[in-house]
């Protein structure tokens, strides 16, 4: 499901600055054990983690792992333990890749655990921030870390049900707006991570005056703070309400399906978040964006 869009910026290819960066983003810290058996990590090790969704990814021939991420963009209850962070940092040192901690939109009570987590990170580690407040804390208190704007901050319409590309143009993204660039600069953010949206095109990343990474092969559609699955073991008044500890049921179960009678993108829900899986046209468009130098990193992650 791709179509041609008309970016306002130049669509001149950027000369590739070198091989594309390749990351894998892991949410469930228990799965670190599977990675730990690798003395070195390869692109196949990353792709293998995607199961049958690996067919929805096209990587350049020279793409090899450069980054490894741990943590959730979507849930305050999935912040990795400091022990897991230590293990992941050690693995990255062994593999010779950069570690990144992924962080969600935060409530105030998450800031102390976040500070404890940041304190474990080596200089130069990345922090994927999805909350402006978290970005401020990283900049002010952990200047040795490198904040990356996560895809929750790179707003764009991503409704897989849209009947046509015309609908998708109703709210264009503002990623090229001057103030956006300036605000990210002021927060010390040097990189942007984005999704590939339904009805997107390769050149949607052209002219963004920032190094861009794309998540593949799943985009997220919507995320809430209320979690159906996380309420499984709760009762009223905690059930279906914010801020309550869950049992991380989302790491054990997900939902997959579609709207009856449609041929839309494969859709799934894990915990509080809905995802679509990239169709072949989307995979090809990302590969085109990489080839043109508009995207300099691919971050593989599940749904």
């Amino acid at each position: 499901m791709t179509s041609t869009s008309t970016p306002t910026a130049s669509i001149t290819p950027n000369p590739p600055a070198g091989p594309i960066e390749l990351g894998f983003a892991l949410v469930d810290e228990r799965e670190l054990a599977a990675f730990a058996r690798h003395e070195r990590v390869t692109r196949d090790d990353y792709l293998e983690q995607l199961g049958d969704a690996r067919q929805c990814v096209t990587l350049p021939d020279d793409a090899e792992p450069t980054h490894f991420f741990l943590g959730s963009e979507f849930c305050e209850h999935l912040l990795p333990s400091v022990e897991a962070i230590d293990r992941a940092v050690a693995l990255c040192e062994r593999w010779g890749v950069t570690f990144g901690l992924v962080t969600p939109i935060a409530c105030d009570s998450l800031f102390e655990p976040l500070r404890a987590a940041f304190a474990r990170l080596p200089a130069g580690a990345e922090v994927t921030v999805n909350d402006w407040g978290v970005a401020r804390v990283v900049q002010r208190e952990f200047p040795d870390l490198r904040p990356v704007a996560g895809r929750l901050l790179g707003k764009m319409l991503k409704d897989p049900r849209l009947p046509s590309a015309t609908w998708a143009r109703m709210y264009p993204n503002g990623l090229r707006a001057g103030p956006f660039r300036e605000i990210l600069d002021n927060l010390g953010i040097g990189r942007l991570e984005l999704d590939f949206p339904p009805f997107g095109a390769a050149d949607m990343y052209a002219g963004i005056d920032f190094p861009v990474g794309v998540r593949a092969p799943y985009g997220y559609i919507a995320k809430g703070r209320i979690c159906k699955l996380g309420s499984l073991a709760l009762d009223v008044p905690e059930k279906f309400s914010p801020g309550h500890r869950c049992r991380r049921e989302c790491l054990g179960f997900s939902e997959v399906g579609a709207r009856p009678g449609t041929r839309e993108l494969q859709t799934s829900q894990r915990g509080n978040t809905m995802y679509y899986r990239h169709a072949p046209g989307m995979t090809a468009a990302i590969a085109e964006a990489v080839a043109n130098g508009w995207v300099s990193r691919i971050v593989l992650s599940g749904a």
Partner: peptide, 12 residues
């Protein structure tokens, strides 16, 4: 149901 700022859909 989803947070307004992280629901990238339209009300069809």
């Amino acid at each position: 149901v989803f947070e307004e700022g992280t629901c990238h859909t339209v009300h069809l």
